[in-house]
Structures are given as structure tokens and as C-alpha cells.
Design a protein around this nucleic acid. Sequence first.
RNA 1: GGUCCCUUCGUCUAUCGGUUAGGACACCAGAUUUUCAUUCUGGUAAGGCGAGUUCGAUUCUCGCAGGGAUCACCA
Length: 540
Amino acid sequence: MTATSPVVRFAPSPTGYLHIGGARTALFNWLYAKGRDGKFLLRIEDTDRERNNPQAVAAIIDGLTWLELDWNGEPVSQFARATRHREVAESMLAAGTAYKCFMTADELTAIRERIEAERETAKNWLKALKSLDRDLTHDEKADLEAATEAATRPLTVFSPWRDRSPDDAPNGAPFAIRLKAPRDGETVIDDAVQGRVVFPNKDLDDLIILRSDGNPTYNLAVVVDDHDMGITHVVRGVDHLTNAARQVQIYAANAWTIPQFAHVPLIHGADGAKLSKRHGALGIEAYRSMGYLPAALRNYLVRLGWSHGDDEIIGTPQLIEWFDLPAIGRSAARMDLKKLEDTNAHYIRSADNAELLKRSRELLELYSGGFADLASEHDAKVMRGDVVLARNVLALLPGVPDGKALAARFNAAGWDQFAAAIPGLKERAKTLPELIDGALFLVTARPLKIDDKAAKLLDSEAKAIISALIPKLAANADWTAADLEAVVRQHAEDTGAKLGKVAQPLRAALTGRSVSPPVFDVMSVLGRTEALARLGDQAA
RNA sequence: GGUCCCUUCGUCUAUCGGUUAGGACACCAGAUUUUCAUUCUGGUAAGGCGAGUUCGAUUCUCGCAGGGAUCACCA
């Protein structure tokens, strides 16, 4: 690490889960640090004690861990640093860059409500004046002007204590500490993503940095922590852009070096509206349960708002090399599950077979809540991997209540069969549940439940074909896919039938479905005894 | 309402004054294939509106419209 390598951080507040936008912010920070030999720190913004709870912190850590974003050192608790924050506030008071404000919270809300009320009446007044279908009198013009002024007045509240002596306050009265922000001029953010953003200082009020209960406020805590932690680049959501202006003022008041800001756009739902649970603002763990691979989610997430020419499927090492802040777009991007699915399919196809097996087993363990409820609660708009899997499991494997029970169906030999089937399975699975679903035929007990499409395939003619094939197949001692294919092809040739005419009935009998990996692979993976038995069940 | 940001196919985006406006997802059609999937080929589809600058604007400027963020002793 050199003196110029960046120090970045991800600073979520513990709200219960790591949402998808937060995950992307973390990813951007992580990539930036990784690509520059920098450090990626984790800080939990737990200043608000009411909102804090250990599970929420655990959810964030779990999410980052699953996404494979590792951070340097121990996570920092912002709450634990309250004493330091207080010190800074006190020193600012001493330096005259902050002042005591004796206004109470009630007074403040009363003032805001009054401004709002005045604004309302002014608006009505305006409407009335404008509806007057004639030239306004001199007085009315004055009214119009006054009403316009009142209707467009900002909600900003300026404390009178900025210019009053604290001695004017009653002895021992509680006070908050406010930043003495500049009144004139402008505060400028030179943002790596947003460019140069200018805020007129007259629009920025004196924010409270220390509450009357002695606890620091978010903006103070962030600045002090970022400064103390040596953060060089603050990469976060644009929802913090206006905070950045406030924060720059705090940096300036303390004569601290201002970090490079980069405010990245937010992610919107598929309909363009703000992300809510309906639209997929699910926690990162939901994407995990939907069966997406971490690498695929990373690829998708980084491409959402960032691009590198025409490149789409970009592996993590390449991402680390290519990623940079200025290439991030400025407009909000919409979540597109279809594209995520496609990206995931690419990663599944090229994934290591052992990894796929491991992740499938983990996923099954995750689905311990029971399938029946999930299936009945199914909402077509909400895609969840466990629900998708549940429907198939319920249809094919009655009596299997949840993922753990399903996993139990695979004994040691079963897992080996699963592993053997993965090369064929992963070509046609977009997600892990689809992969698992494709392997279900392995653990289905005889007699197989035949689905509707498969049943159509098994007419009397088909059953006759199966009967004719059984002895020929049984004659095959080695039971390799290649040998079996040769037998079936020969049979088709001999009887003048198309291969599909012969293969489809086999597929139906072997798997209970009309869709599966190549039948010869299926037979091979199933093993001689089981395959023959299943065929026998459907023979004429 | 104040302040700030955004605006290219349905979606994610490329383009850094001159292109038949490119790619990806989705969608449609076709080829290959034992099903499905993969793969391959082709197709539909875009610069919000209005001015200005310029020989020439998607690209630069301004206005409008639309969308978004934010305005707590929350973070």
C-alpha cells in the first residue's frame, strides 16, 4: 500500500437487512479499493439507539459475506464513538464555529407548521387572485407579490440564538449545538459522479450537530468518523448529496481535508418508481434464496449504471481492473429481473460443477420454512426461488414439506447422481432452484407421478415402443450414455421411426416430464436398475 | 413549495459535433437439436418538447415538460 492508495468505506444504518441499493454501493466501494490497492472499511451507523438491534447488523454482515465483499479490519460502531463526536462539537463551540441553540424541538415543529400553514393560505390567495378575470388593482398586485413570496418560502428555520448571547437563556436550560454555517457565498461539491454541484449557502440552515441530550447527530458523526478513519473517497447514494453540502461545511469549520465525493444514482423498481418491497427492494438474502450466484449478482449490479463499452459479462478480476467512478452514469436505473436472470444463467453455465452442487445443497438448507405455505402465498408479482421450487416439489413429491426434507431424500448416492447430472442440468438452468428442480427426477420414488404433458406422450403406441426397447436396453451391461444412445438410434432406424418419436416416451417414463436433460444421460445417471424399473412401470 | 440531479430502443447502456445511432436483456422469425436449453442467423424497436449556436446537432447553451432526491434534536 502506498501513501496515495484510497481508503473507502461502506456505512449502512442497521435497518434490518442489506437492501439491493446498499449492496451496490458496497460493491462500488469494494471494487474501487480492490483496483487501487486501497482499503475498504465497514462502519455501522448505529447512532440512533432506538433503531439499533444486533440482528440488523448481522443481516448486513451476512449479506456482504454472501456477496463475497470482504472488508479491512473490524466493523466500526458509530455509537461507540459518541464521546469523540461530543468532543469535536465542544471544540467547535470553543472555536466559535458552532453555537448553543435553546430552541426546543416543540418550538421548532411549531414554526415549521406555521410556515406550512401560511404557505397554504398564500397558495389559496394566489389562486383566488389569478382567477380574477380582470386587471388587478394596485393593492391586489401588491397582494399577489406578497402571496407569491409566502407561497414559495422555504421551510428552512434559522435559529435566533446564532446572534444571541447564551446568557439570555434561562439558567440550566437544555440546548442543542448548531453549526454556524456561512450565510453568504456557496458550498460546492466536486463530485466524481455528479460533477460540480453548487448549493447557495442562504438555502442551508444551521444544522444541529449535537442534540440536547448530548448525543451527536448523523452529519457530525459521519464527518468526524470519515476524518478519523482517514477516508479519502466517500462513495454513497445520491440521497446523501444534500448532506454532503452540510458535511462540507463541517469539514471546513474544522479545517479538515474534504474527501473526494462520489454520489451514485439510486436503483428504481421496474416501473420507475422508488424501490419498495413490491418492486424487488428485497434484502440481499432474497436474491440469494432466488438462487442467484454472488458473482452474477455483482456483475449485474455493477452494470446497472456503469458500463465499459459493449462488455456485458465481466468477471470480477476484470471488474476490479476496469471499474472507475467517472464512468458511473448520473440517471437512476431500473431493476430488471430478466436481465439478472440471463446474467445468472451465464454464470451458472460456466460455474464449477462442485460449486454448483455445494450452493444447491446450501440453498436447500435455507428452504426450511416449509413449501406448502410459500406455495399458497404465491403472488405472481413476487418472484422467489423457494416458491418456484415449492410448486414443482409439491407437484412431483407429495409429502416433502421443506428444503431440508428434500435434501434428506438425496442420500450419499443421490448427491453423487446429482453431481453427475450437473453438466447436463446447468445448460438449462437460469437459477439454482431451476437446477435443483431439474434434478428432482433423481429422487422421485416409483411409481413416478407423470405430469400432464408427459402423460400425453405416453399413449399406447409409445408404451409399445418402451416395451420393445426394454430388452434391448437391458442387454447393455455397461450402461453408458453412448451405448444406450446407439441402441435407441438403431431401434429407431430399424422401425423407421424418428428419434424423437422414440426418445420422448423414454423421457416421459424416466422423469415424469416432457422436458429433461438428454434421455441417455438421464438413463446413465439413474443407473441400470432404476432406469429399467421406471421404464417397466410405463410399458404396455 | 425551496434546493439539487436526471431525460438515447420496453429495460441497462455506447456515442465524447458529421455514424445506415452500436451492443446486451426482453420480444418475433428462422437454422441446428431426441425434448428443453444452449448455439447460430435475421427482424421489430430510441435521442421528451421548443428555441439558439453551427456548414452540420443525440452530442454545446437556454427555456419548457416529465421523472427523481432532499428539506428532523432519523440515518
